[in-house]
Design a protein around this nucleic acid. Structure first.
Lengths: 210, 210
DNA sequence: TCCCTCATGTAAAAGGTTACATGATTTA
DNA sequence: TAAATCATGTAACCTTTTACATGAGGGA
């Protein structure tokens, strides 16, 4: 009962088609609340800011935009272009903004994370430590790079926006999510270093035994 | 090509049925590599150690066990019981152990995390700060509790197992994943506190304006 | 010439959640 | 007496991924 359900239409044979807004729908609305986008532009946008914590592919975005339009949460305008294909530029409606506003302060259920690396770590005891060592060094690199990328974006934001970034400014969303992103990546890098140390110990031990 | 695909059978009309091991399959194998379990016992087990980073429901576990059995990665034995229903106790086979071992050191692709709270944070600028404040205090509590739970388990592990927990011991998997789990929860609690501070500032400001 | 970008879509399959279905025993 | 636990499964639905499909324009 926590999710508002939007009744689209009641049709024959006793069926009711109910469309409710998916999390992806809210993700798209979140971008459209800042500025209008075409489907393709949203696809690109999903790679950067929102993409850090919510991704979507082409085959999700286009149908979802259609659904949001049916629900009256977005409208679109066909924009003719020369030299490249025409596009549909979507904008959020007043109803869309209202739905997004409500959703933003609705309780977020604890989401069950799924992490393949941790599952592999759980199985490390029967794996080859030398190969595992290689993998954790790769992971450390990867998270160090991601950390650097996040820090770069934060620096750029701090340079473009005056010192106290207020909650009411749209950029606060980028800033706040980057803060936890940086904490997360730092914790991961530290943990990878610890894992590497553990595995180096293990490979040295087997080396002595041989 | 990184995933080994298991060809089950070639059948008429040009169709090939290929069964490959899903991540859930490896999760079940990871538990069965430690000790035999029934489907029901696996369901319970998925709530605790593996459940922290990989969950599964009944409707996934039972069919997956059937698949693993077809692939020859597990076997089962029907155990008759008095006073409660009979059960099928699954054990990992040599092939299962081998597949698990290989998978454990195969490169783990960076998994795109999905986090609804961060999506909501991205939309905070158009939400009511007072309500948002409530949500972040709830989140802080939740993560603080999870942190306490993890720390308790680590303490229990450290008491039961002599000081240097080696990579080769099965318990190392629990220990290592709890380490990152604790780091993660600590980072989250800190971030929530920072968010609460930001939102308190925002509600004070609007209070002054009234 | 071949590949990349821009631009919009659909189809099929895999993975995951929620609900349905059954039934004995034990605990509150 | 009602609810929880043990025990196994299926069906329907939703979400996500991978692949298919088309086509113009620009750059190497």
């Amino acid at each position: 009962m926590s999710n508002v359900k939007y009744i689209l239409s009641g049709i024959g044979r006793g069926h009711l088609i109910i469309l409710r807004i998916s999390t992806l729908g809210y993700a798209l609305l979140a971008r459209l609340a800042r500025q209008p986008h075409s489907g393709y532009e949203l696809l690109q946008a999903m790679k950067k800011p929102i993409g850090f914590f919510w991704q979507a592919s082409q085959s999700q975005i286009y149908p979802e935009l259609k659904r949001l339009e049916i629900l009256g949460l977005v409208t679109f305008e066909e924009v003719e272009q020369t030299n490249r294909p025409d596009k549909k530029v979507y904008s959020i409606t007043a109803e869309g903004r209202e739905a997004l506003q409500k959703w933003a302060v609705a309780p977020a259920e604890p989401e069950p994370g799924r992490n393949e690396l941790l599952l592999k770590t759980y199985t490390l005891w029967l794996a080859d430590p030398a190969q595992a060592l290689k993998r954790f060094r790769e992971q450390e690199d990867r998270h160090r790079n991601q950390l650097a990328r996040y820090e770069q974006i934060v620096t750029a934001i701090e340079q473009e926006h005056p010192a106290p970034i207020k909650v009411q400014e749209p950029i606060f969303g980028d800033y706040a999510t980057l803060q936890i992103g940086i904490q997360y990546e730092r914790a991961y890098v530290d943990w990878c270093r610890w894992m590497v140390a553990q595995l180096e110990q293990a490979t040295e031990d087997t080396g002595k035994e041989l």
